[in-house]
Amino acid sequence: MTTERAPQPTTAMANPPVQPLASNLLPGDVVRASAMRDLPAPERQLTKVAKLIDVSRCIGCKACQSACIEWNDTHPEVEENVGVYENPHDLTPDMFTLMRFTEYENPETNEFEWLIRKDGCMHCEDPGCLTACPAPGAIVQYSNGIVDFISDNCIGCGYCVAGCPFNIPRIHKTAHVSKKCTLCSDRVAVGQGPACAKACPTQAIVFGTKDEMIAHAEMRIEDLKERGYENAGLYDPQGVGGTHVMYVLHHADKPSLYADLPDDPKISAVVKGWKGAAKDVGLAAMGLAAVGAMAHGALARANEVSAHDDAEAQEMVAHAAGRLTVEEEAARPPEGAP
């Protein structure tokens, strides 16, 4: 077993190192973990990475989908052709990325545009899935920005589904664990870029450090602007702190054109409320009530039945019995009979 650690990958293009290398994504690189508040400080800061998807360059060939299936060894069900290009019909626990096709008639140019977006986890800097998850360590974020689901810790509750602003996680029907794109954390750990980026024939998907990817995007945007797409821009939504999967869009002013990509994604206020102060306040209220009840129970005077009450009850019952006729009284069963 080699002890030399793999270098951090800065591109998906280069061929991987051939000598065996040890993983370079370590437990100490976890900066955030679901339902674990006091993580030890990370031992080092990895360079932030990102995958950049240039929608204007995508030809919809789905090589990335195939590469993803192959690398992750998933087995998406063969479905029926219902006359649309999306295949499968949606993200599934076995399909971490999906080309979504939108037919758009641009009202300004009267031109038909075919918008193809590679959907999948955005690897949010501030991940809603991680915020919502109740299982310690089922969702982690590494210091390079990758958000990963750790199936061994996942309980399959589906809270991440409610937490994610992008509708990404899918719960596996038989394994009962949540699944999504890993940003190929297992490849990145050994110095390789994501499988989908490597497979893309047009280099619509590129991978590298986040800074480089932003610089690369700027070049592409400039190019698009020259070609008349004046609203071309980068999709790196700040509402979730930026993302480690970014898009170059020709219509960056209207992200929702692209199969409902959220215009301004944020962790829902409902999720923040539910997962934030409400938890601590709720816990405190229940704890105080329980402790208070016990203390009061131990210290305060109990509500005791008095001898007077017993006598009055005796009187009331006897008095009522007195109203019975003599025959009825005689027919009554003896005292204490069941």
């Binding site: 009450d309 017993d310 009055e312 009331m316």
Partner: peptide, 18 residues
């Protein structure tokens, strides 16, 4: 006990006694 019923739920006891 009768005393408990008398103390806390007297109408109930009265109805049953009757």
């Amino acid at each position: 006990t009768g005393g408990w019923a008398y103390r806390h739920h007297r109408k109930w006891l009265r109805e049953l006694a009757g």
